[in-house]
């Protein structure tokens, strides 16, 4: 059992968001789920999450714009973007440019676990 973290998941796929949330909850983390960009941003601004997992493709605004909005208020917010496309160099470049981590879907659960332990 690692120390409990507060985590935000922003993904428009409810099943995926819920299954990730369930899994993280099993490890004792406190997980909050949002299904759209704007809702995710306001939640991120209002709460101090230890990690935010944000999908790149969202119904209202895309993941990169979310990162930009959140960073306006919280410049050091720890955000990981999730992408369904292969981590091609475009996404990678954009992520590097904004100093944000990127993980490709389906999320490598082992890698995610290691990432959480590092916090």
């Amino acid at each position: 059992m690692m120390h409990p973290l507060s985590i935000l998941i922003v993904d428009d796929d409810p099943d995926l968001a819920a299954s990730l949330a369930d899994l993280l909850a099993l490890d004792g983390h406190e997980v909050h789920v949002e299904f759209a960009g704007e809702a995710g941003i306001s939640s991120a601004v209002q709460h101090d999450y230890d990690l935010m997992l944000v999908d790149v493709v969202l119904p209202d605004i895309n993941g990169f714009d979310c990162v930009a909005e959140i960073r306006k208020v919280k410049p050091d917010a720890p955000i990981v973007l999730m992408t369904g496309f292969s981590a091609n160099h475009l996404n990678q470049e954009a992520a590097d440019h904004r100093d944000v981590e990127i993980m490709k879907k389906p999320i490598d659960l082992g890698a995610l676990s290691r990432r959480l332990k590092a916090i």
Partner: peptide, 21 residues
């Protein structure tokens, strides 16, 4: 392929949850 990634992620995460439990 892209549309399959999310259900696949769900299966993966859910299986992991079962395994933990």
């Amino acid at each position: 392929a892209h549309e399959l990634r999310n259900p696949l992620g769900t299966i993966d995460a859910s299986t992991e949850a079962i395994a933990r439990q």
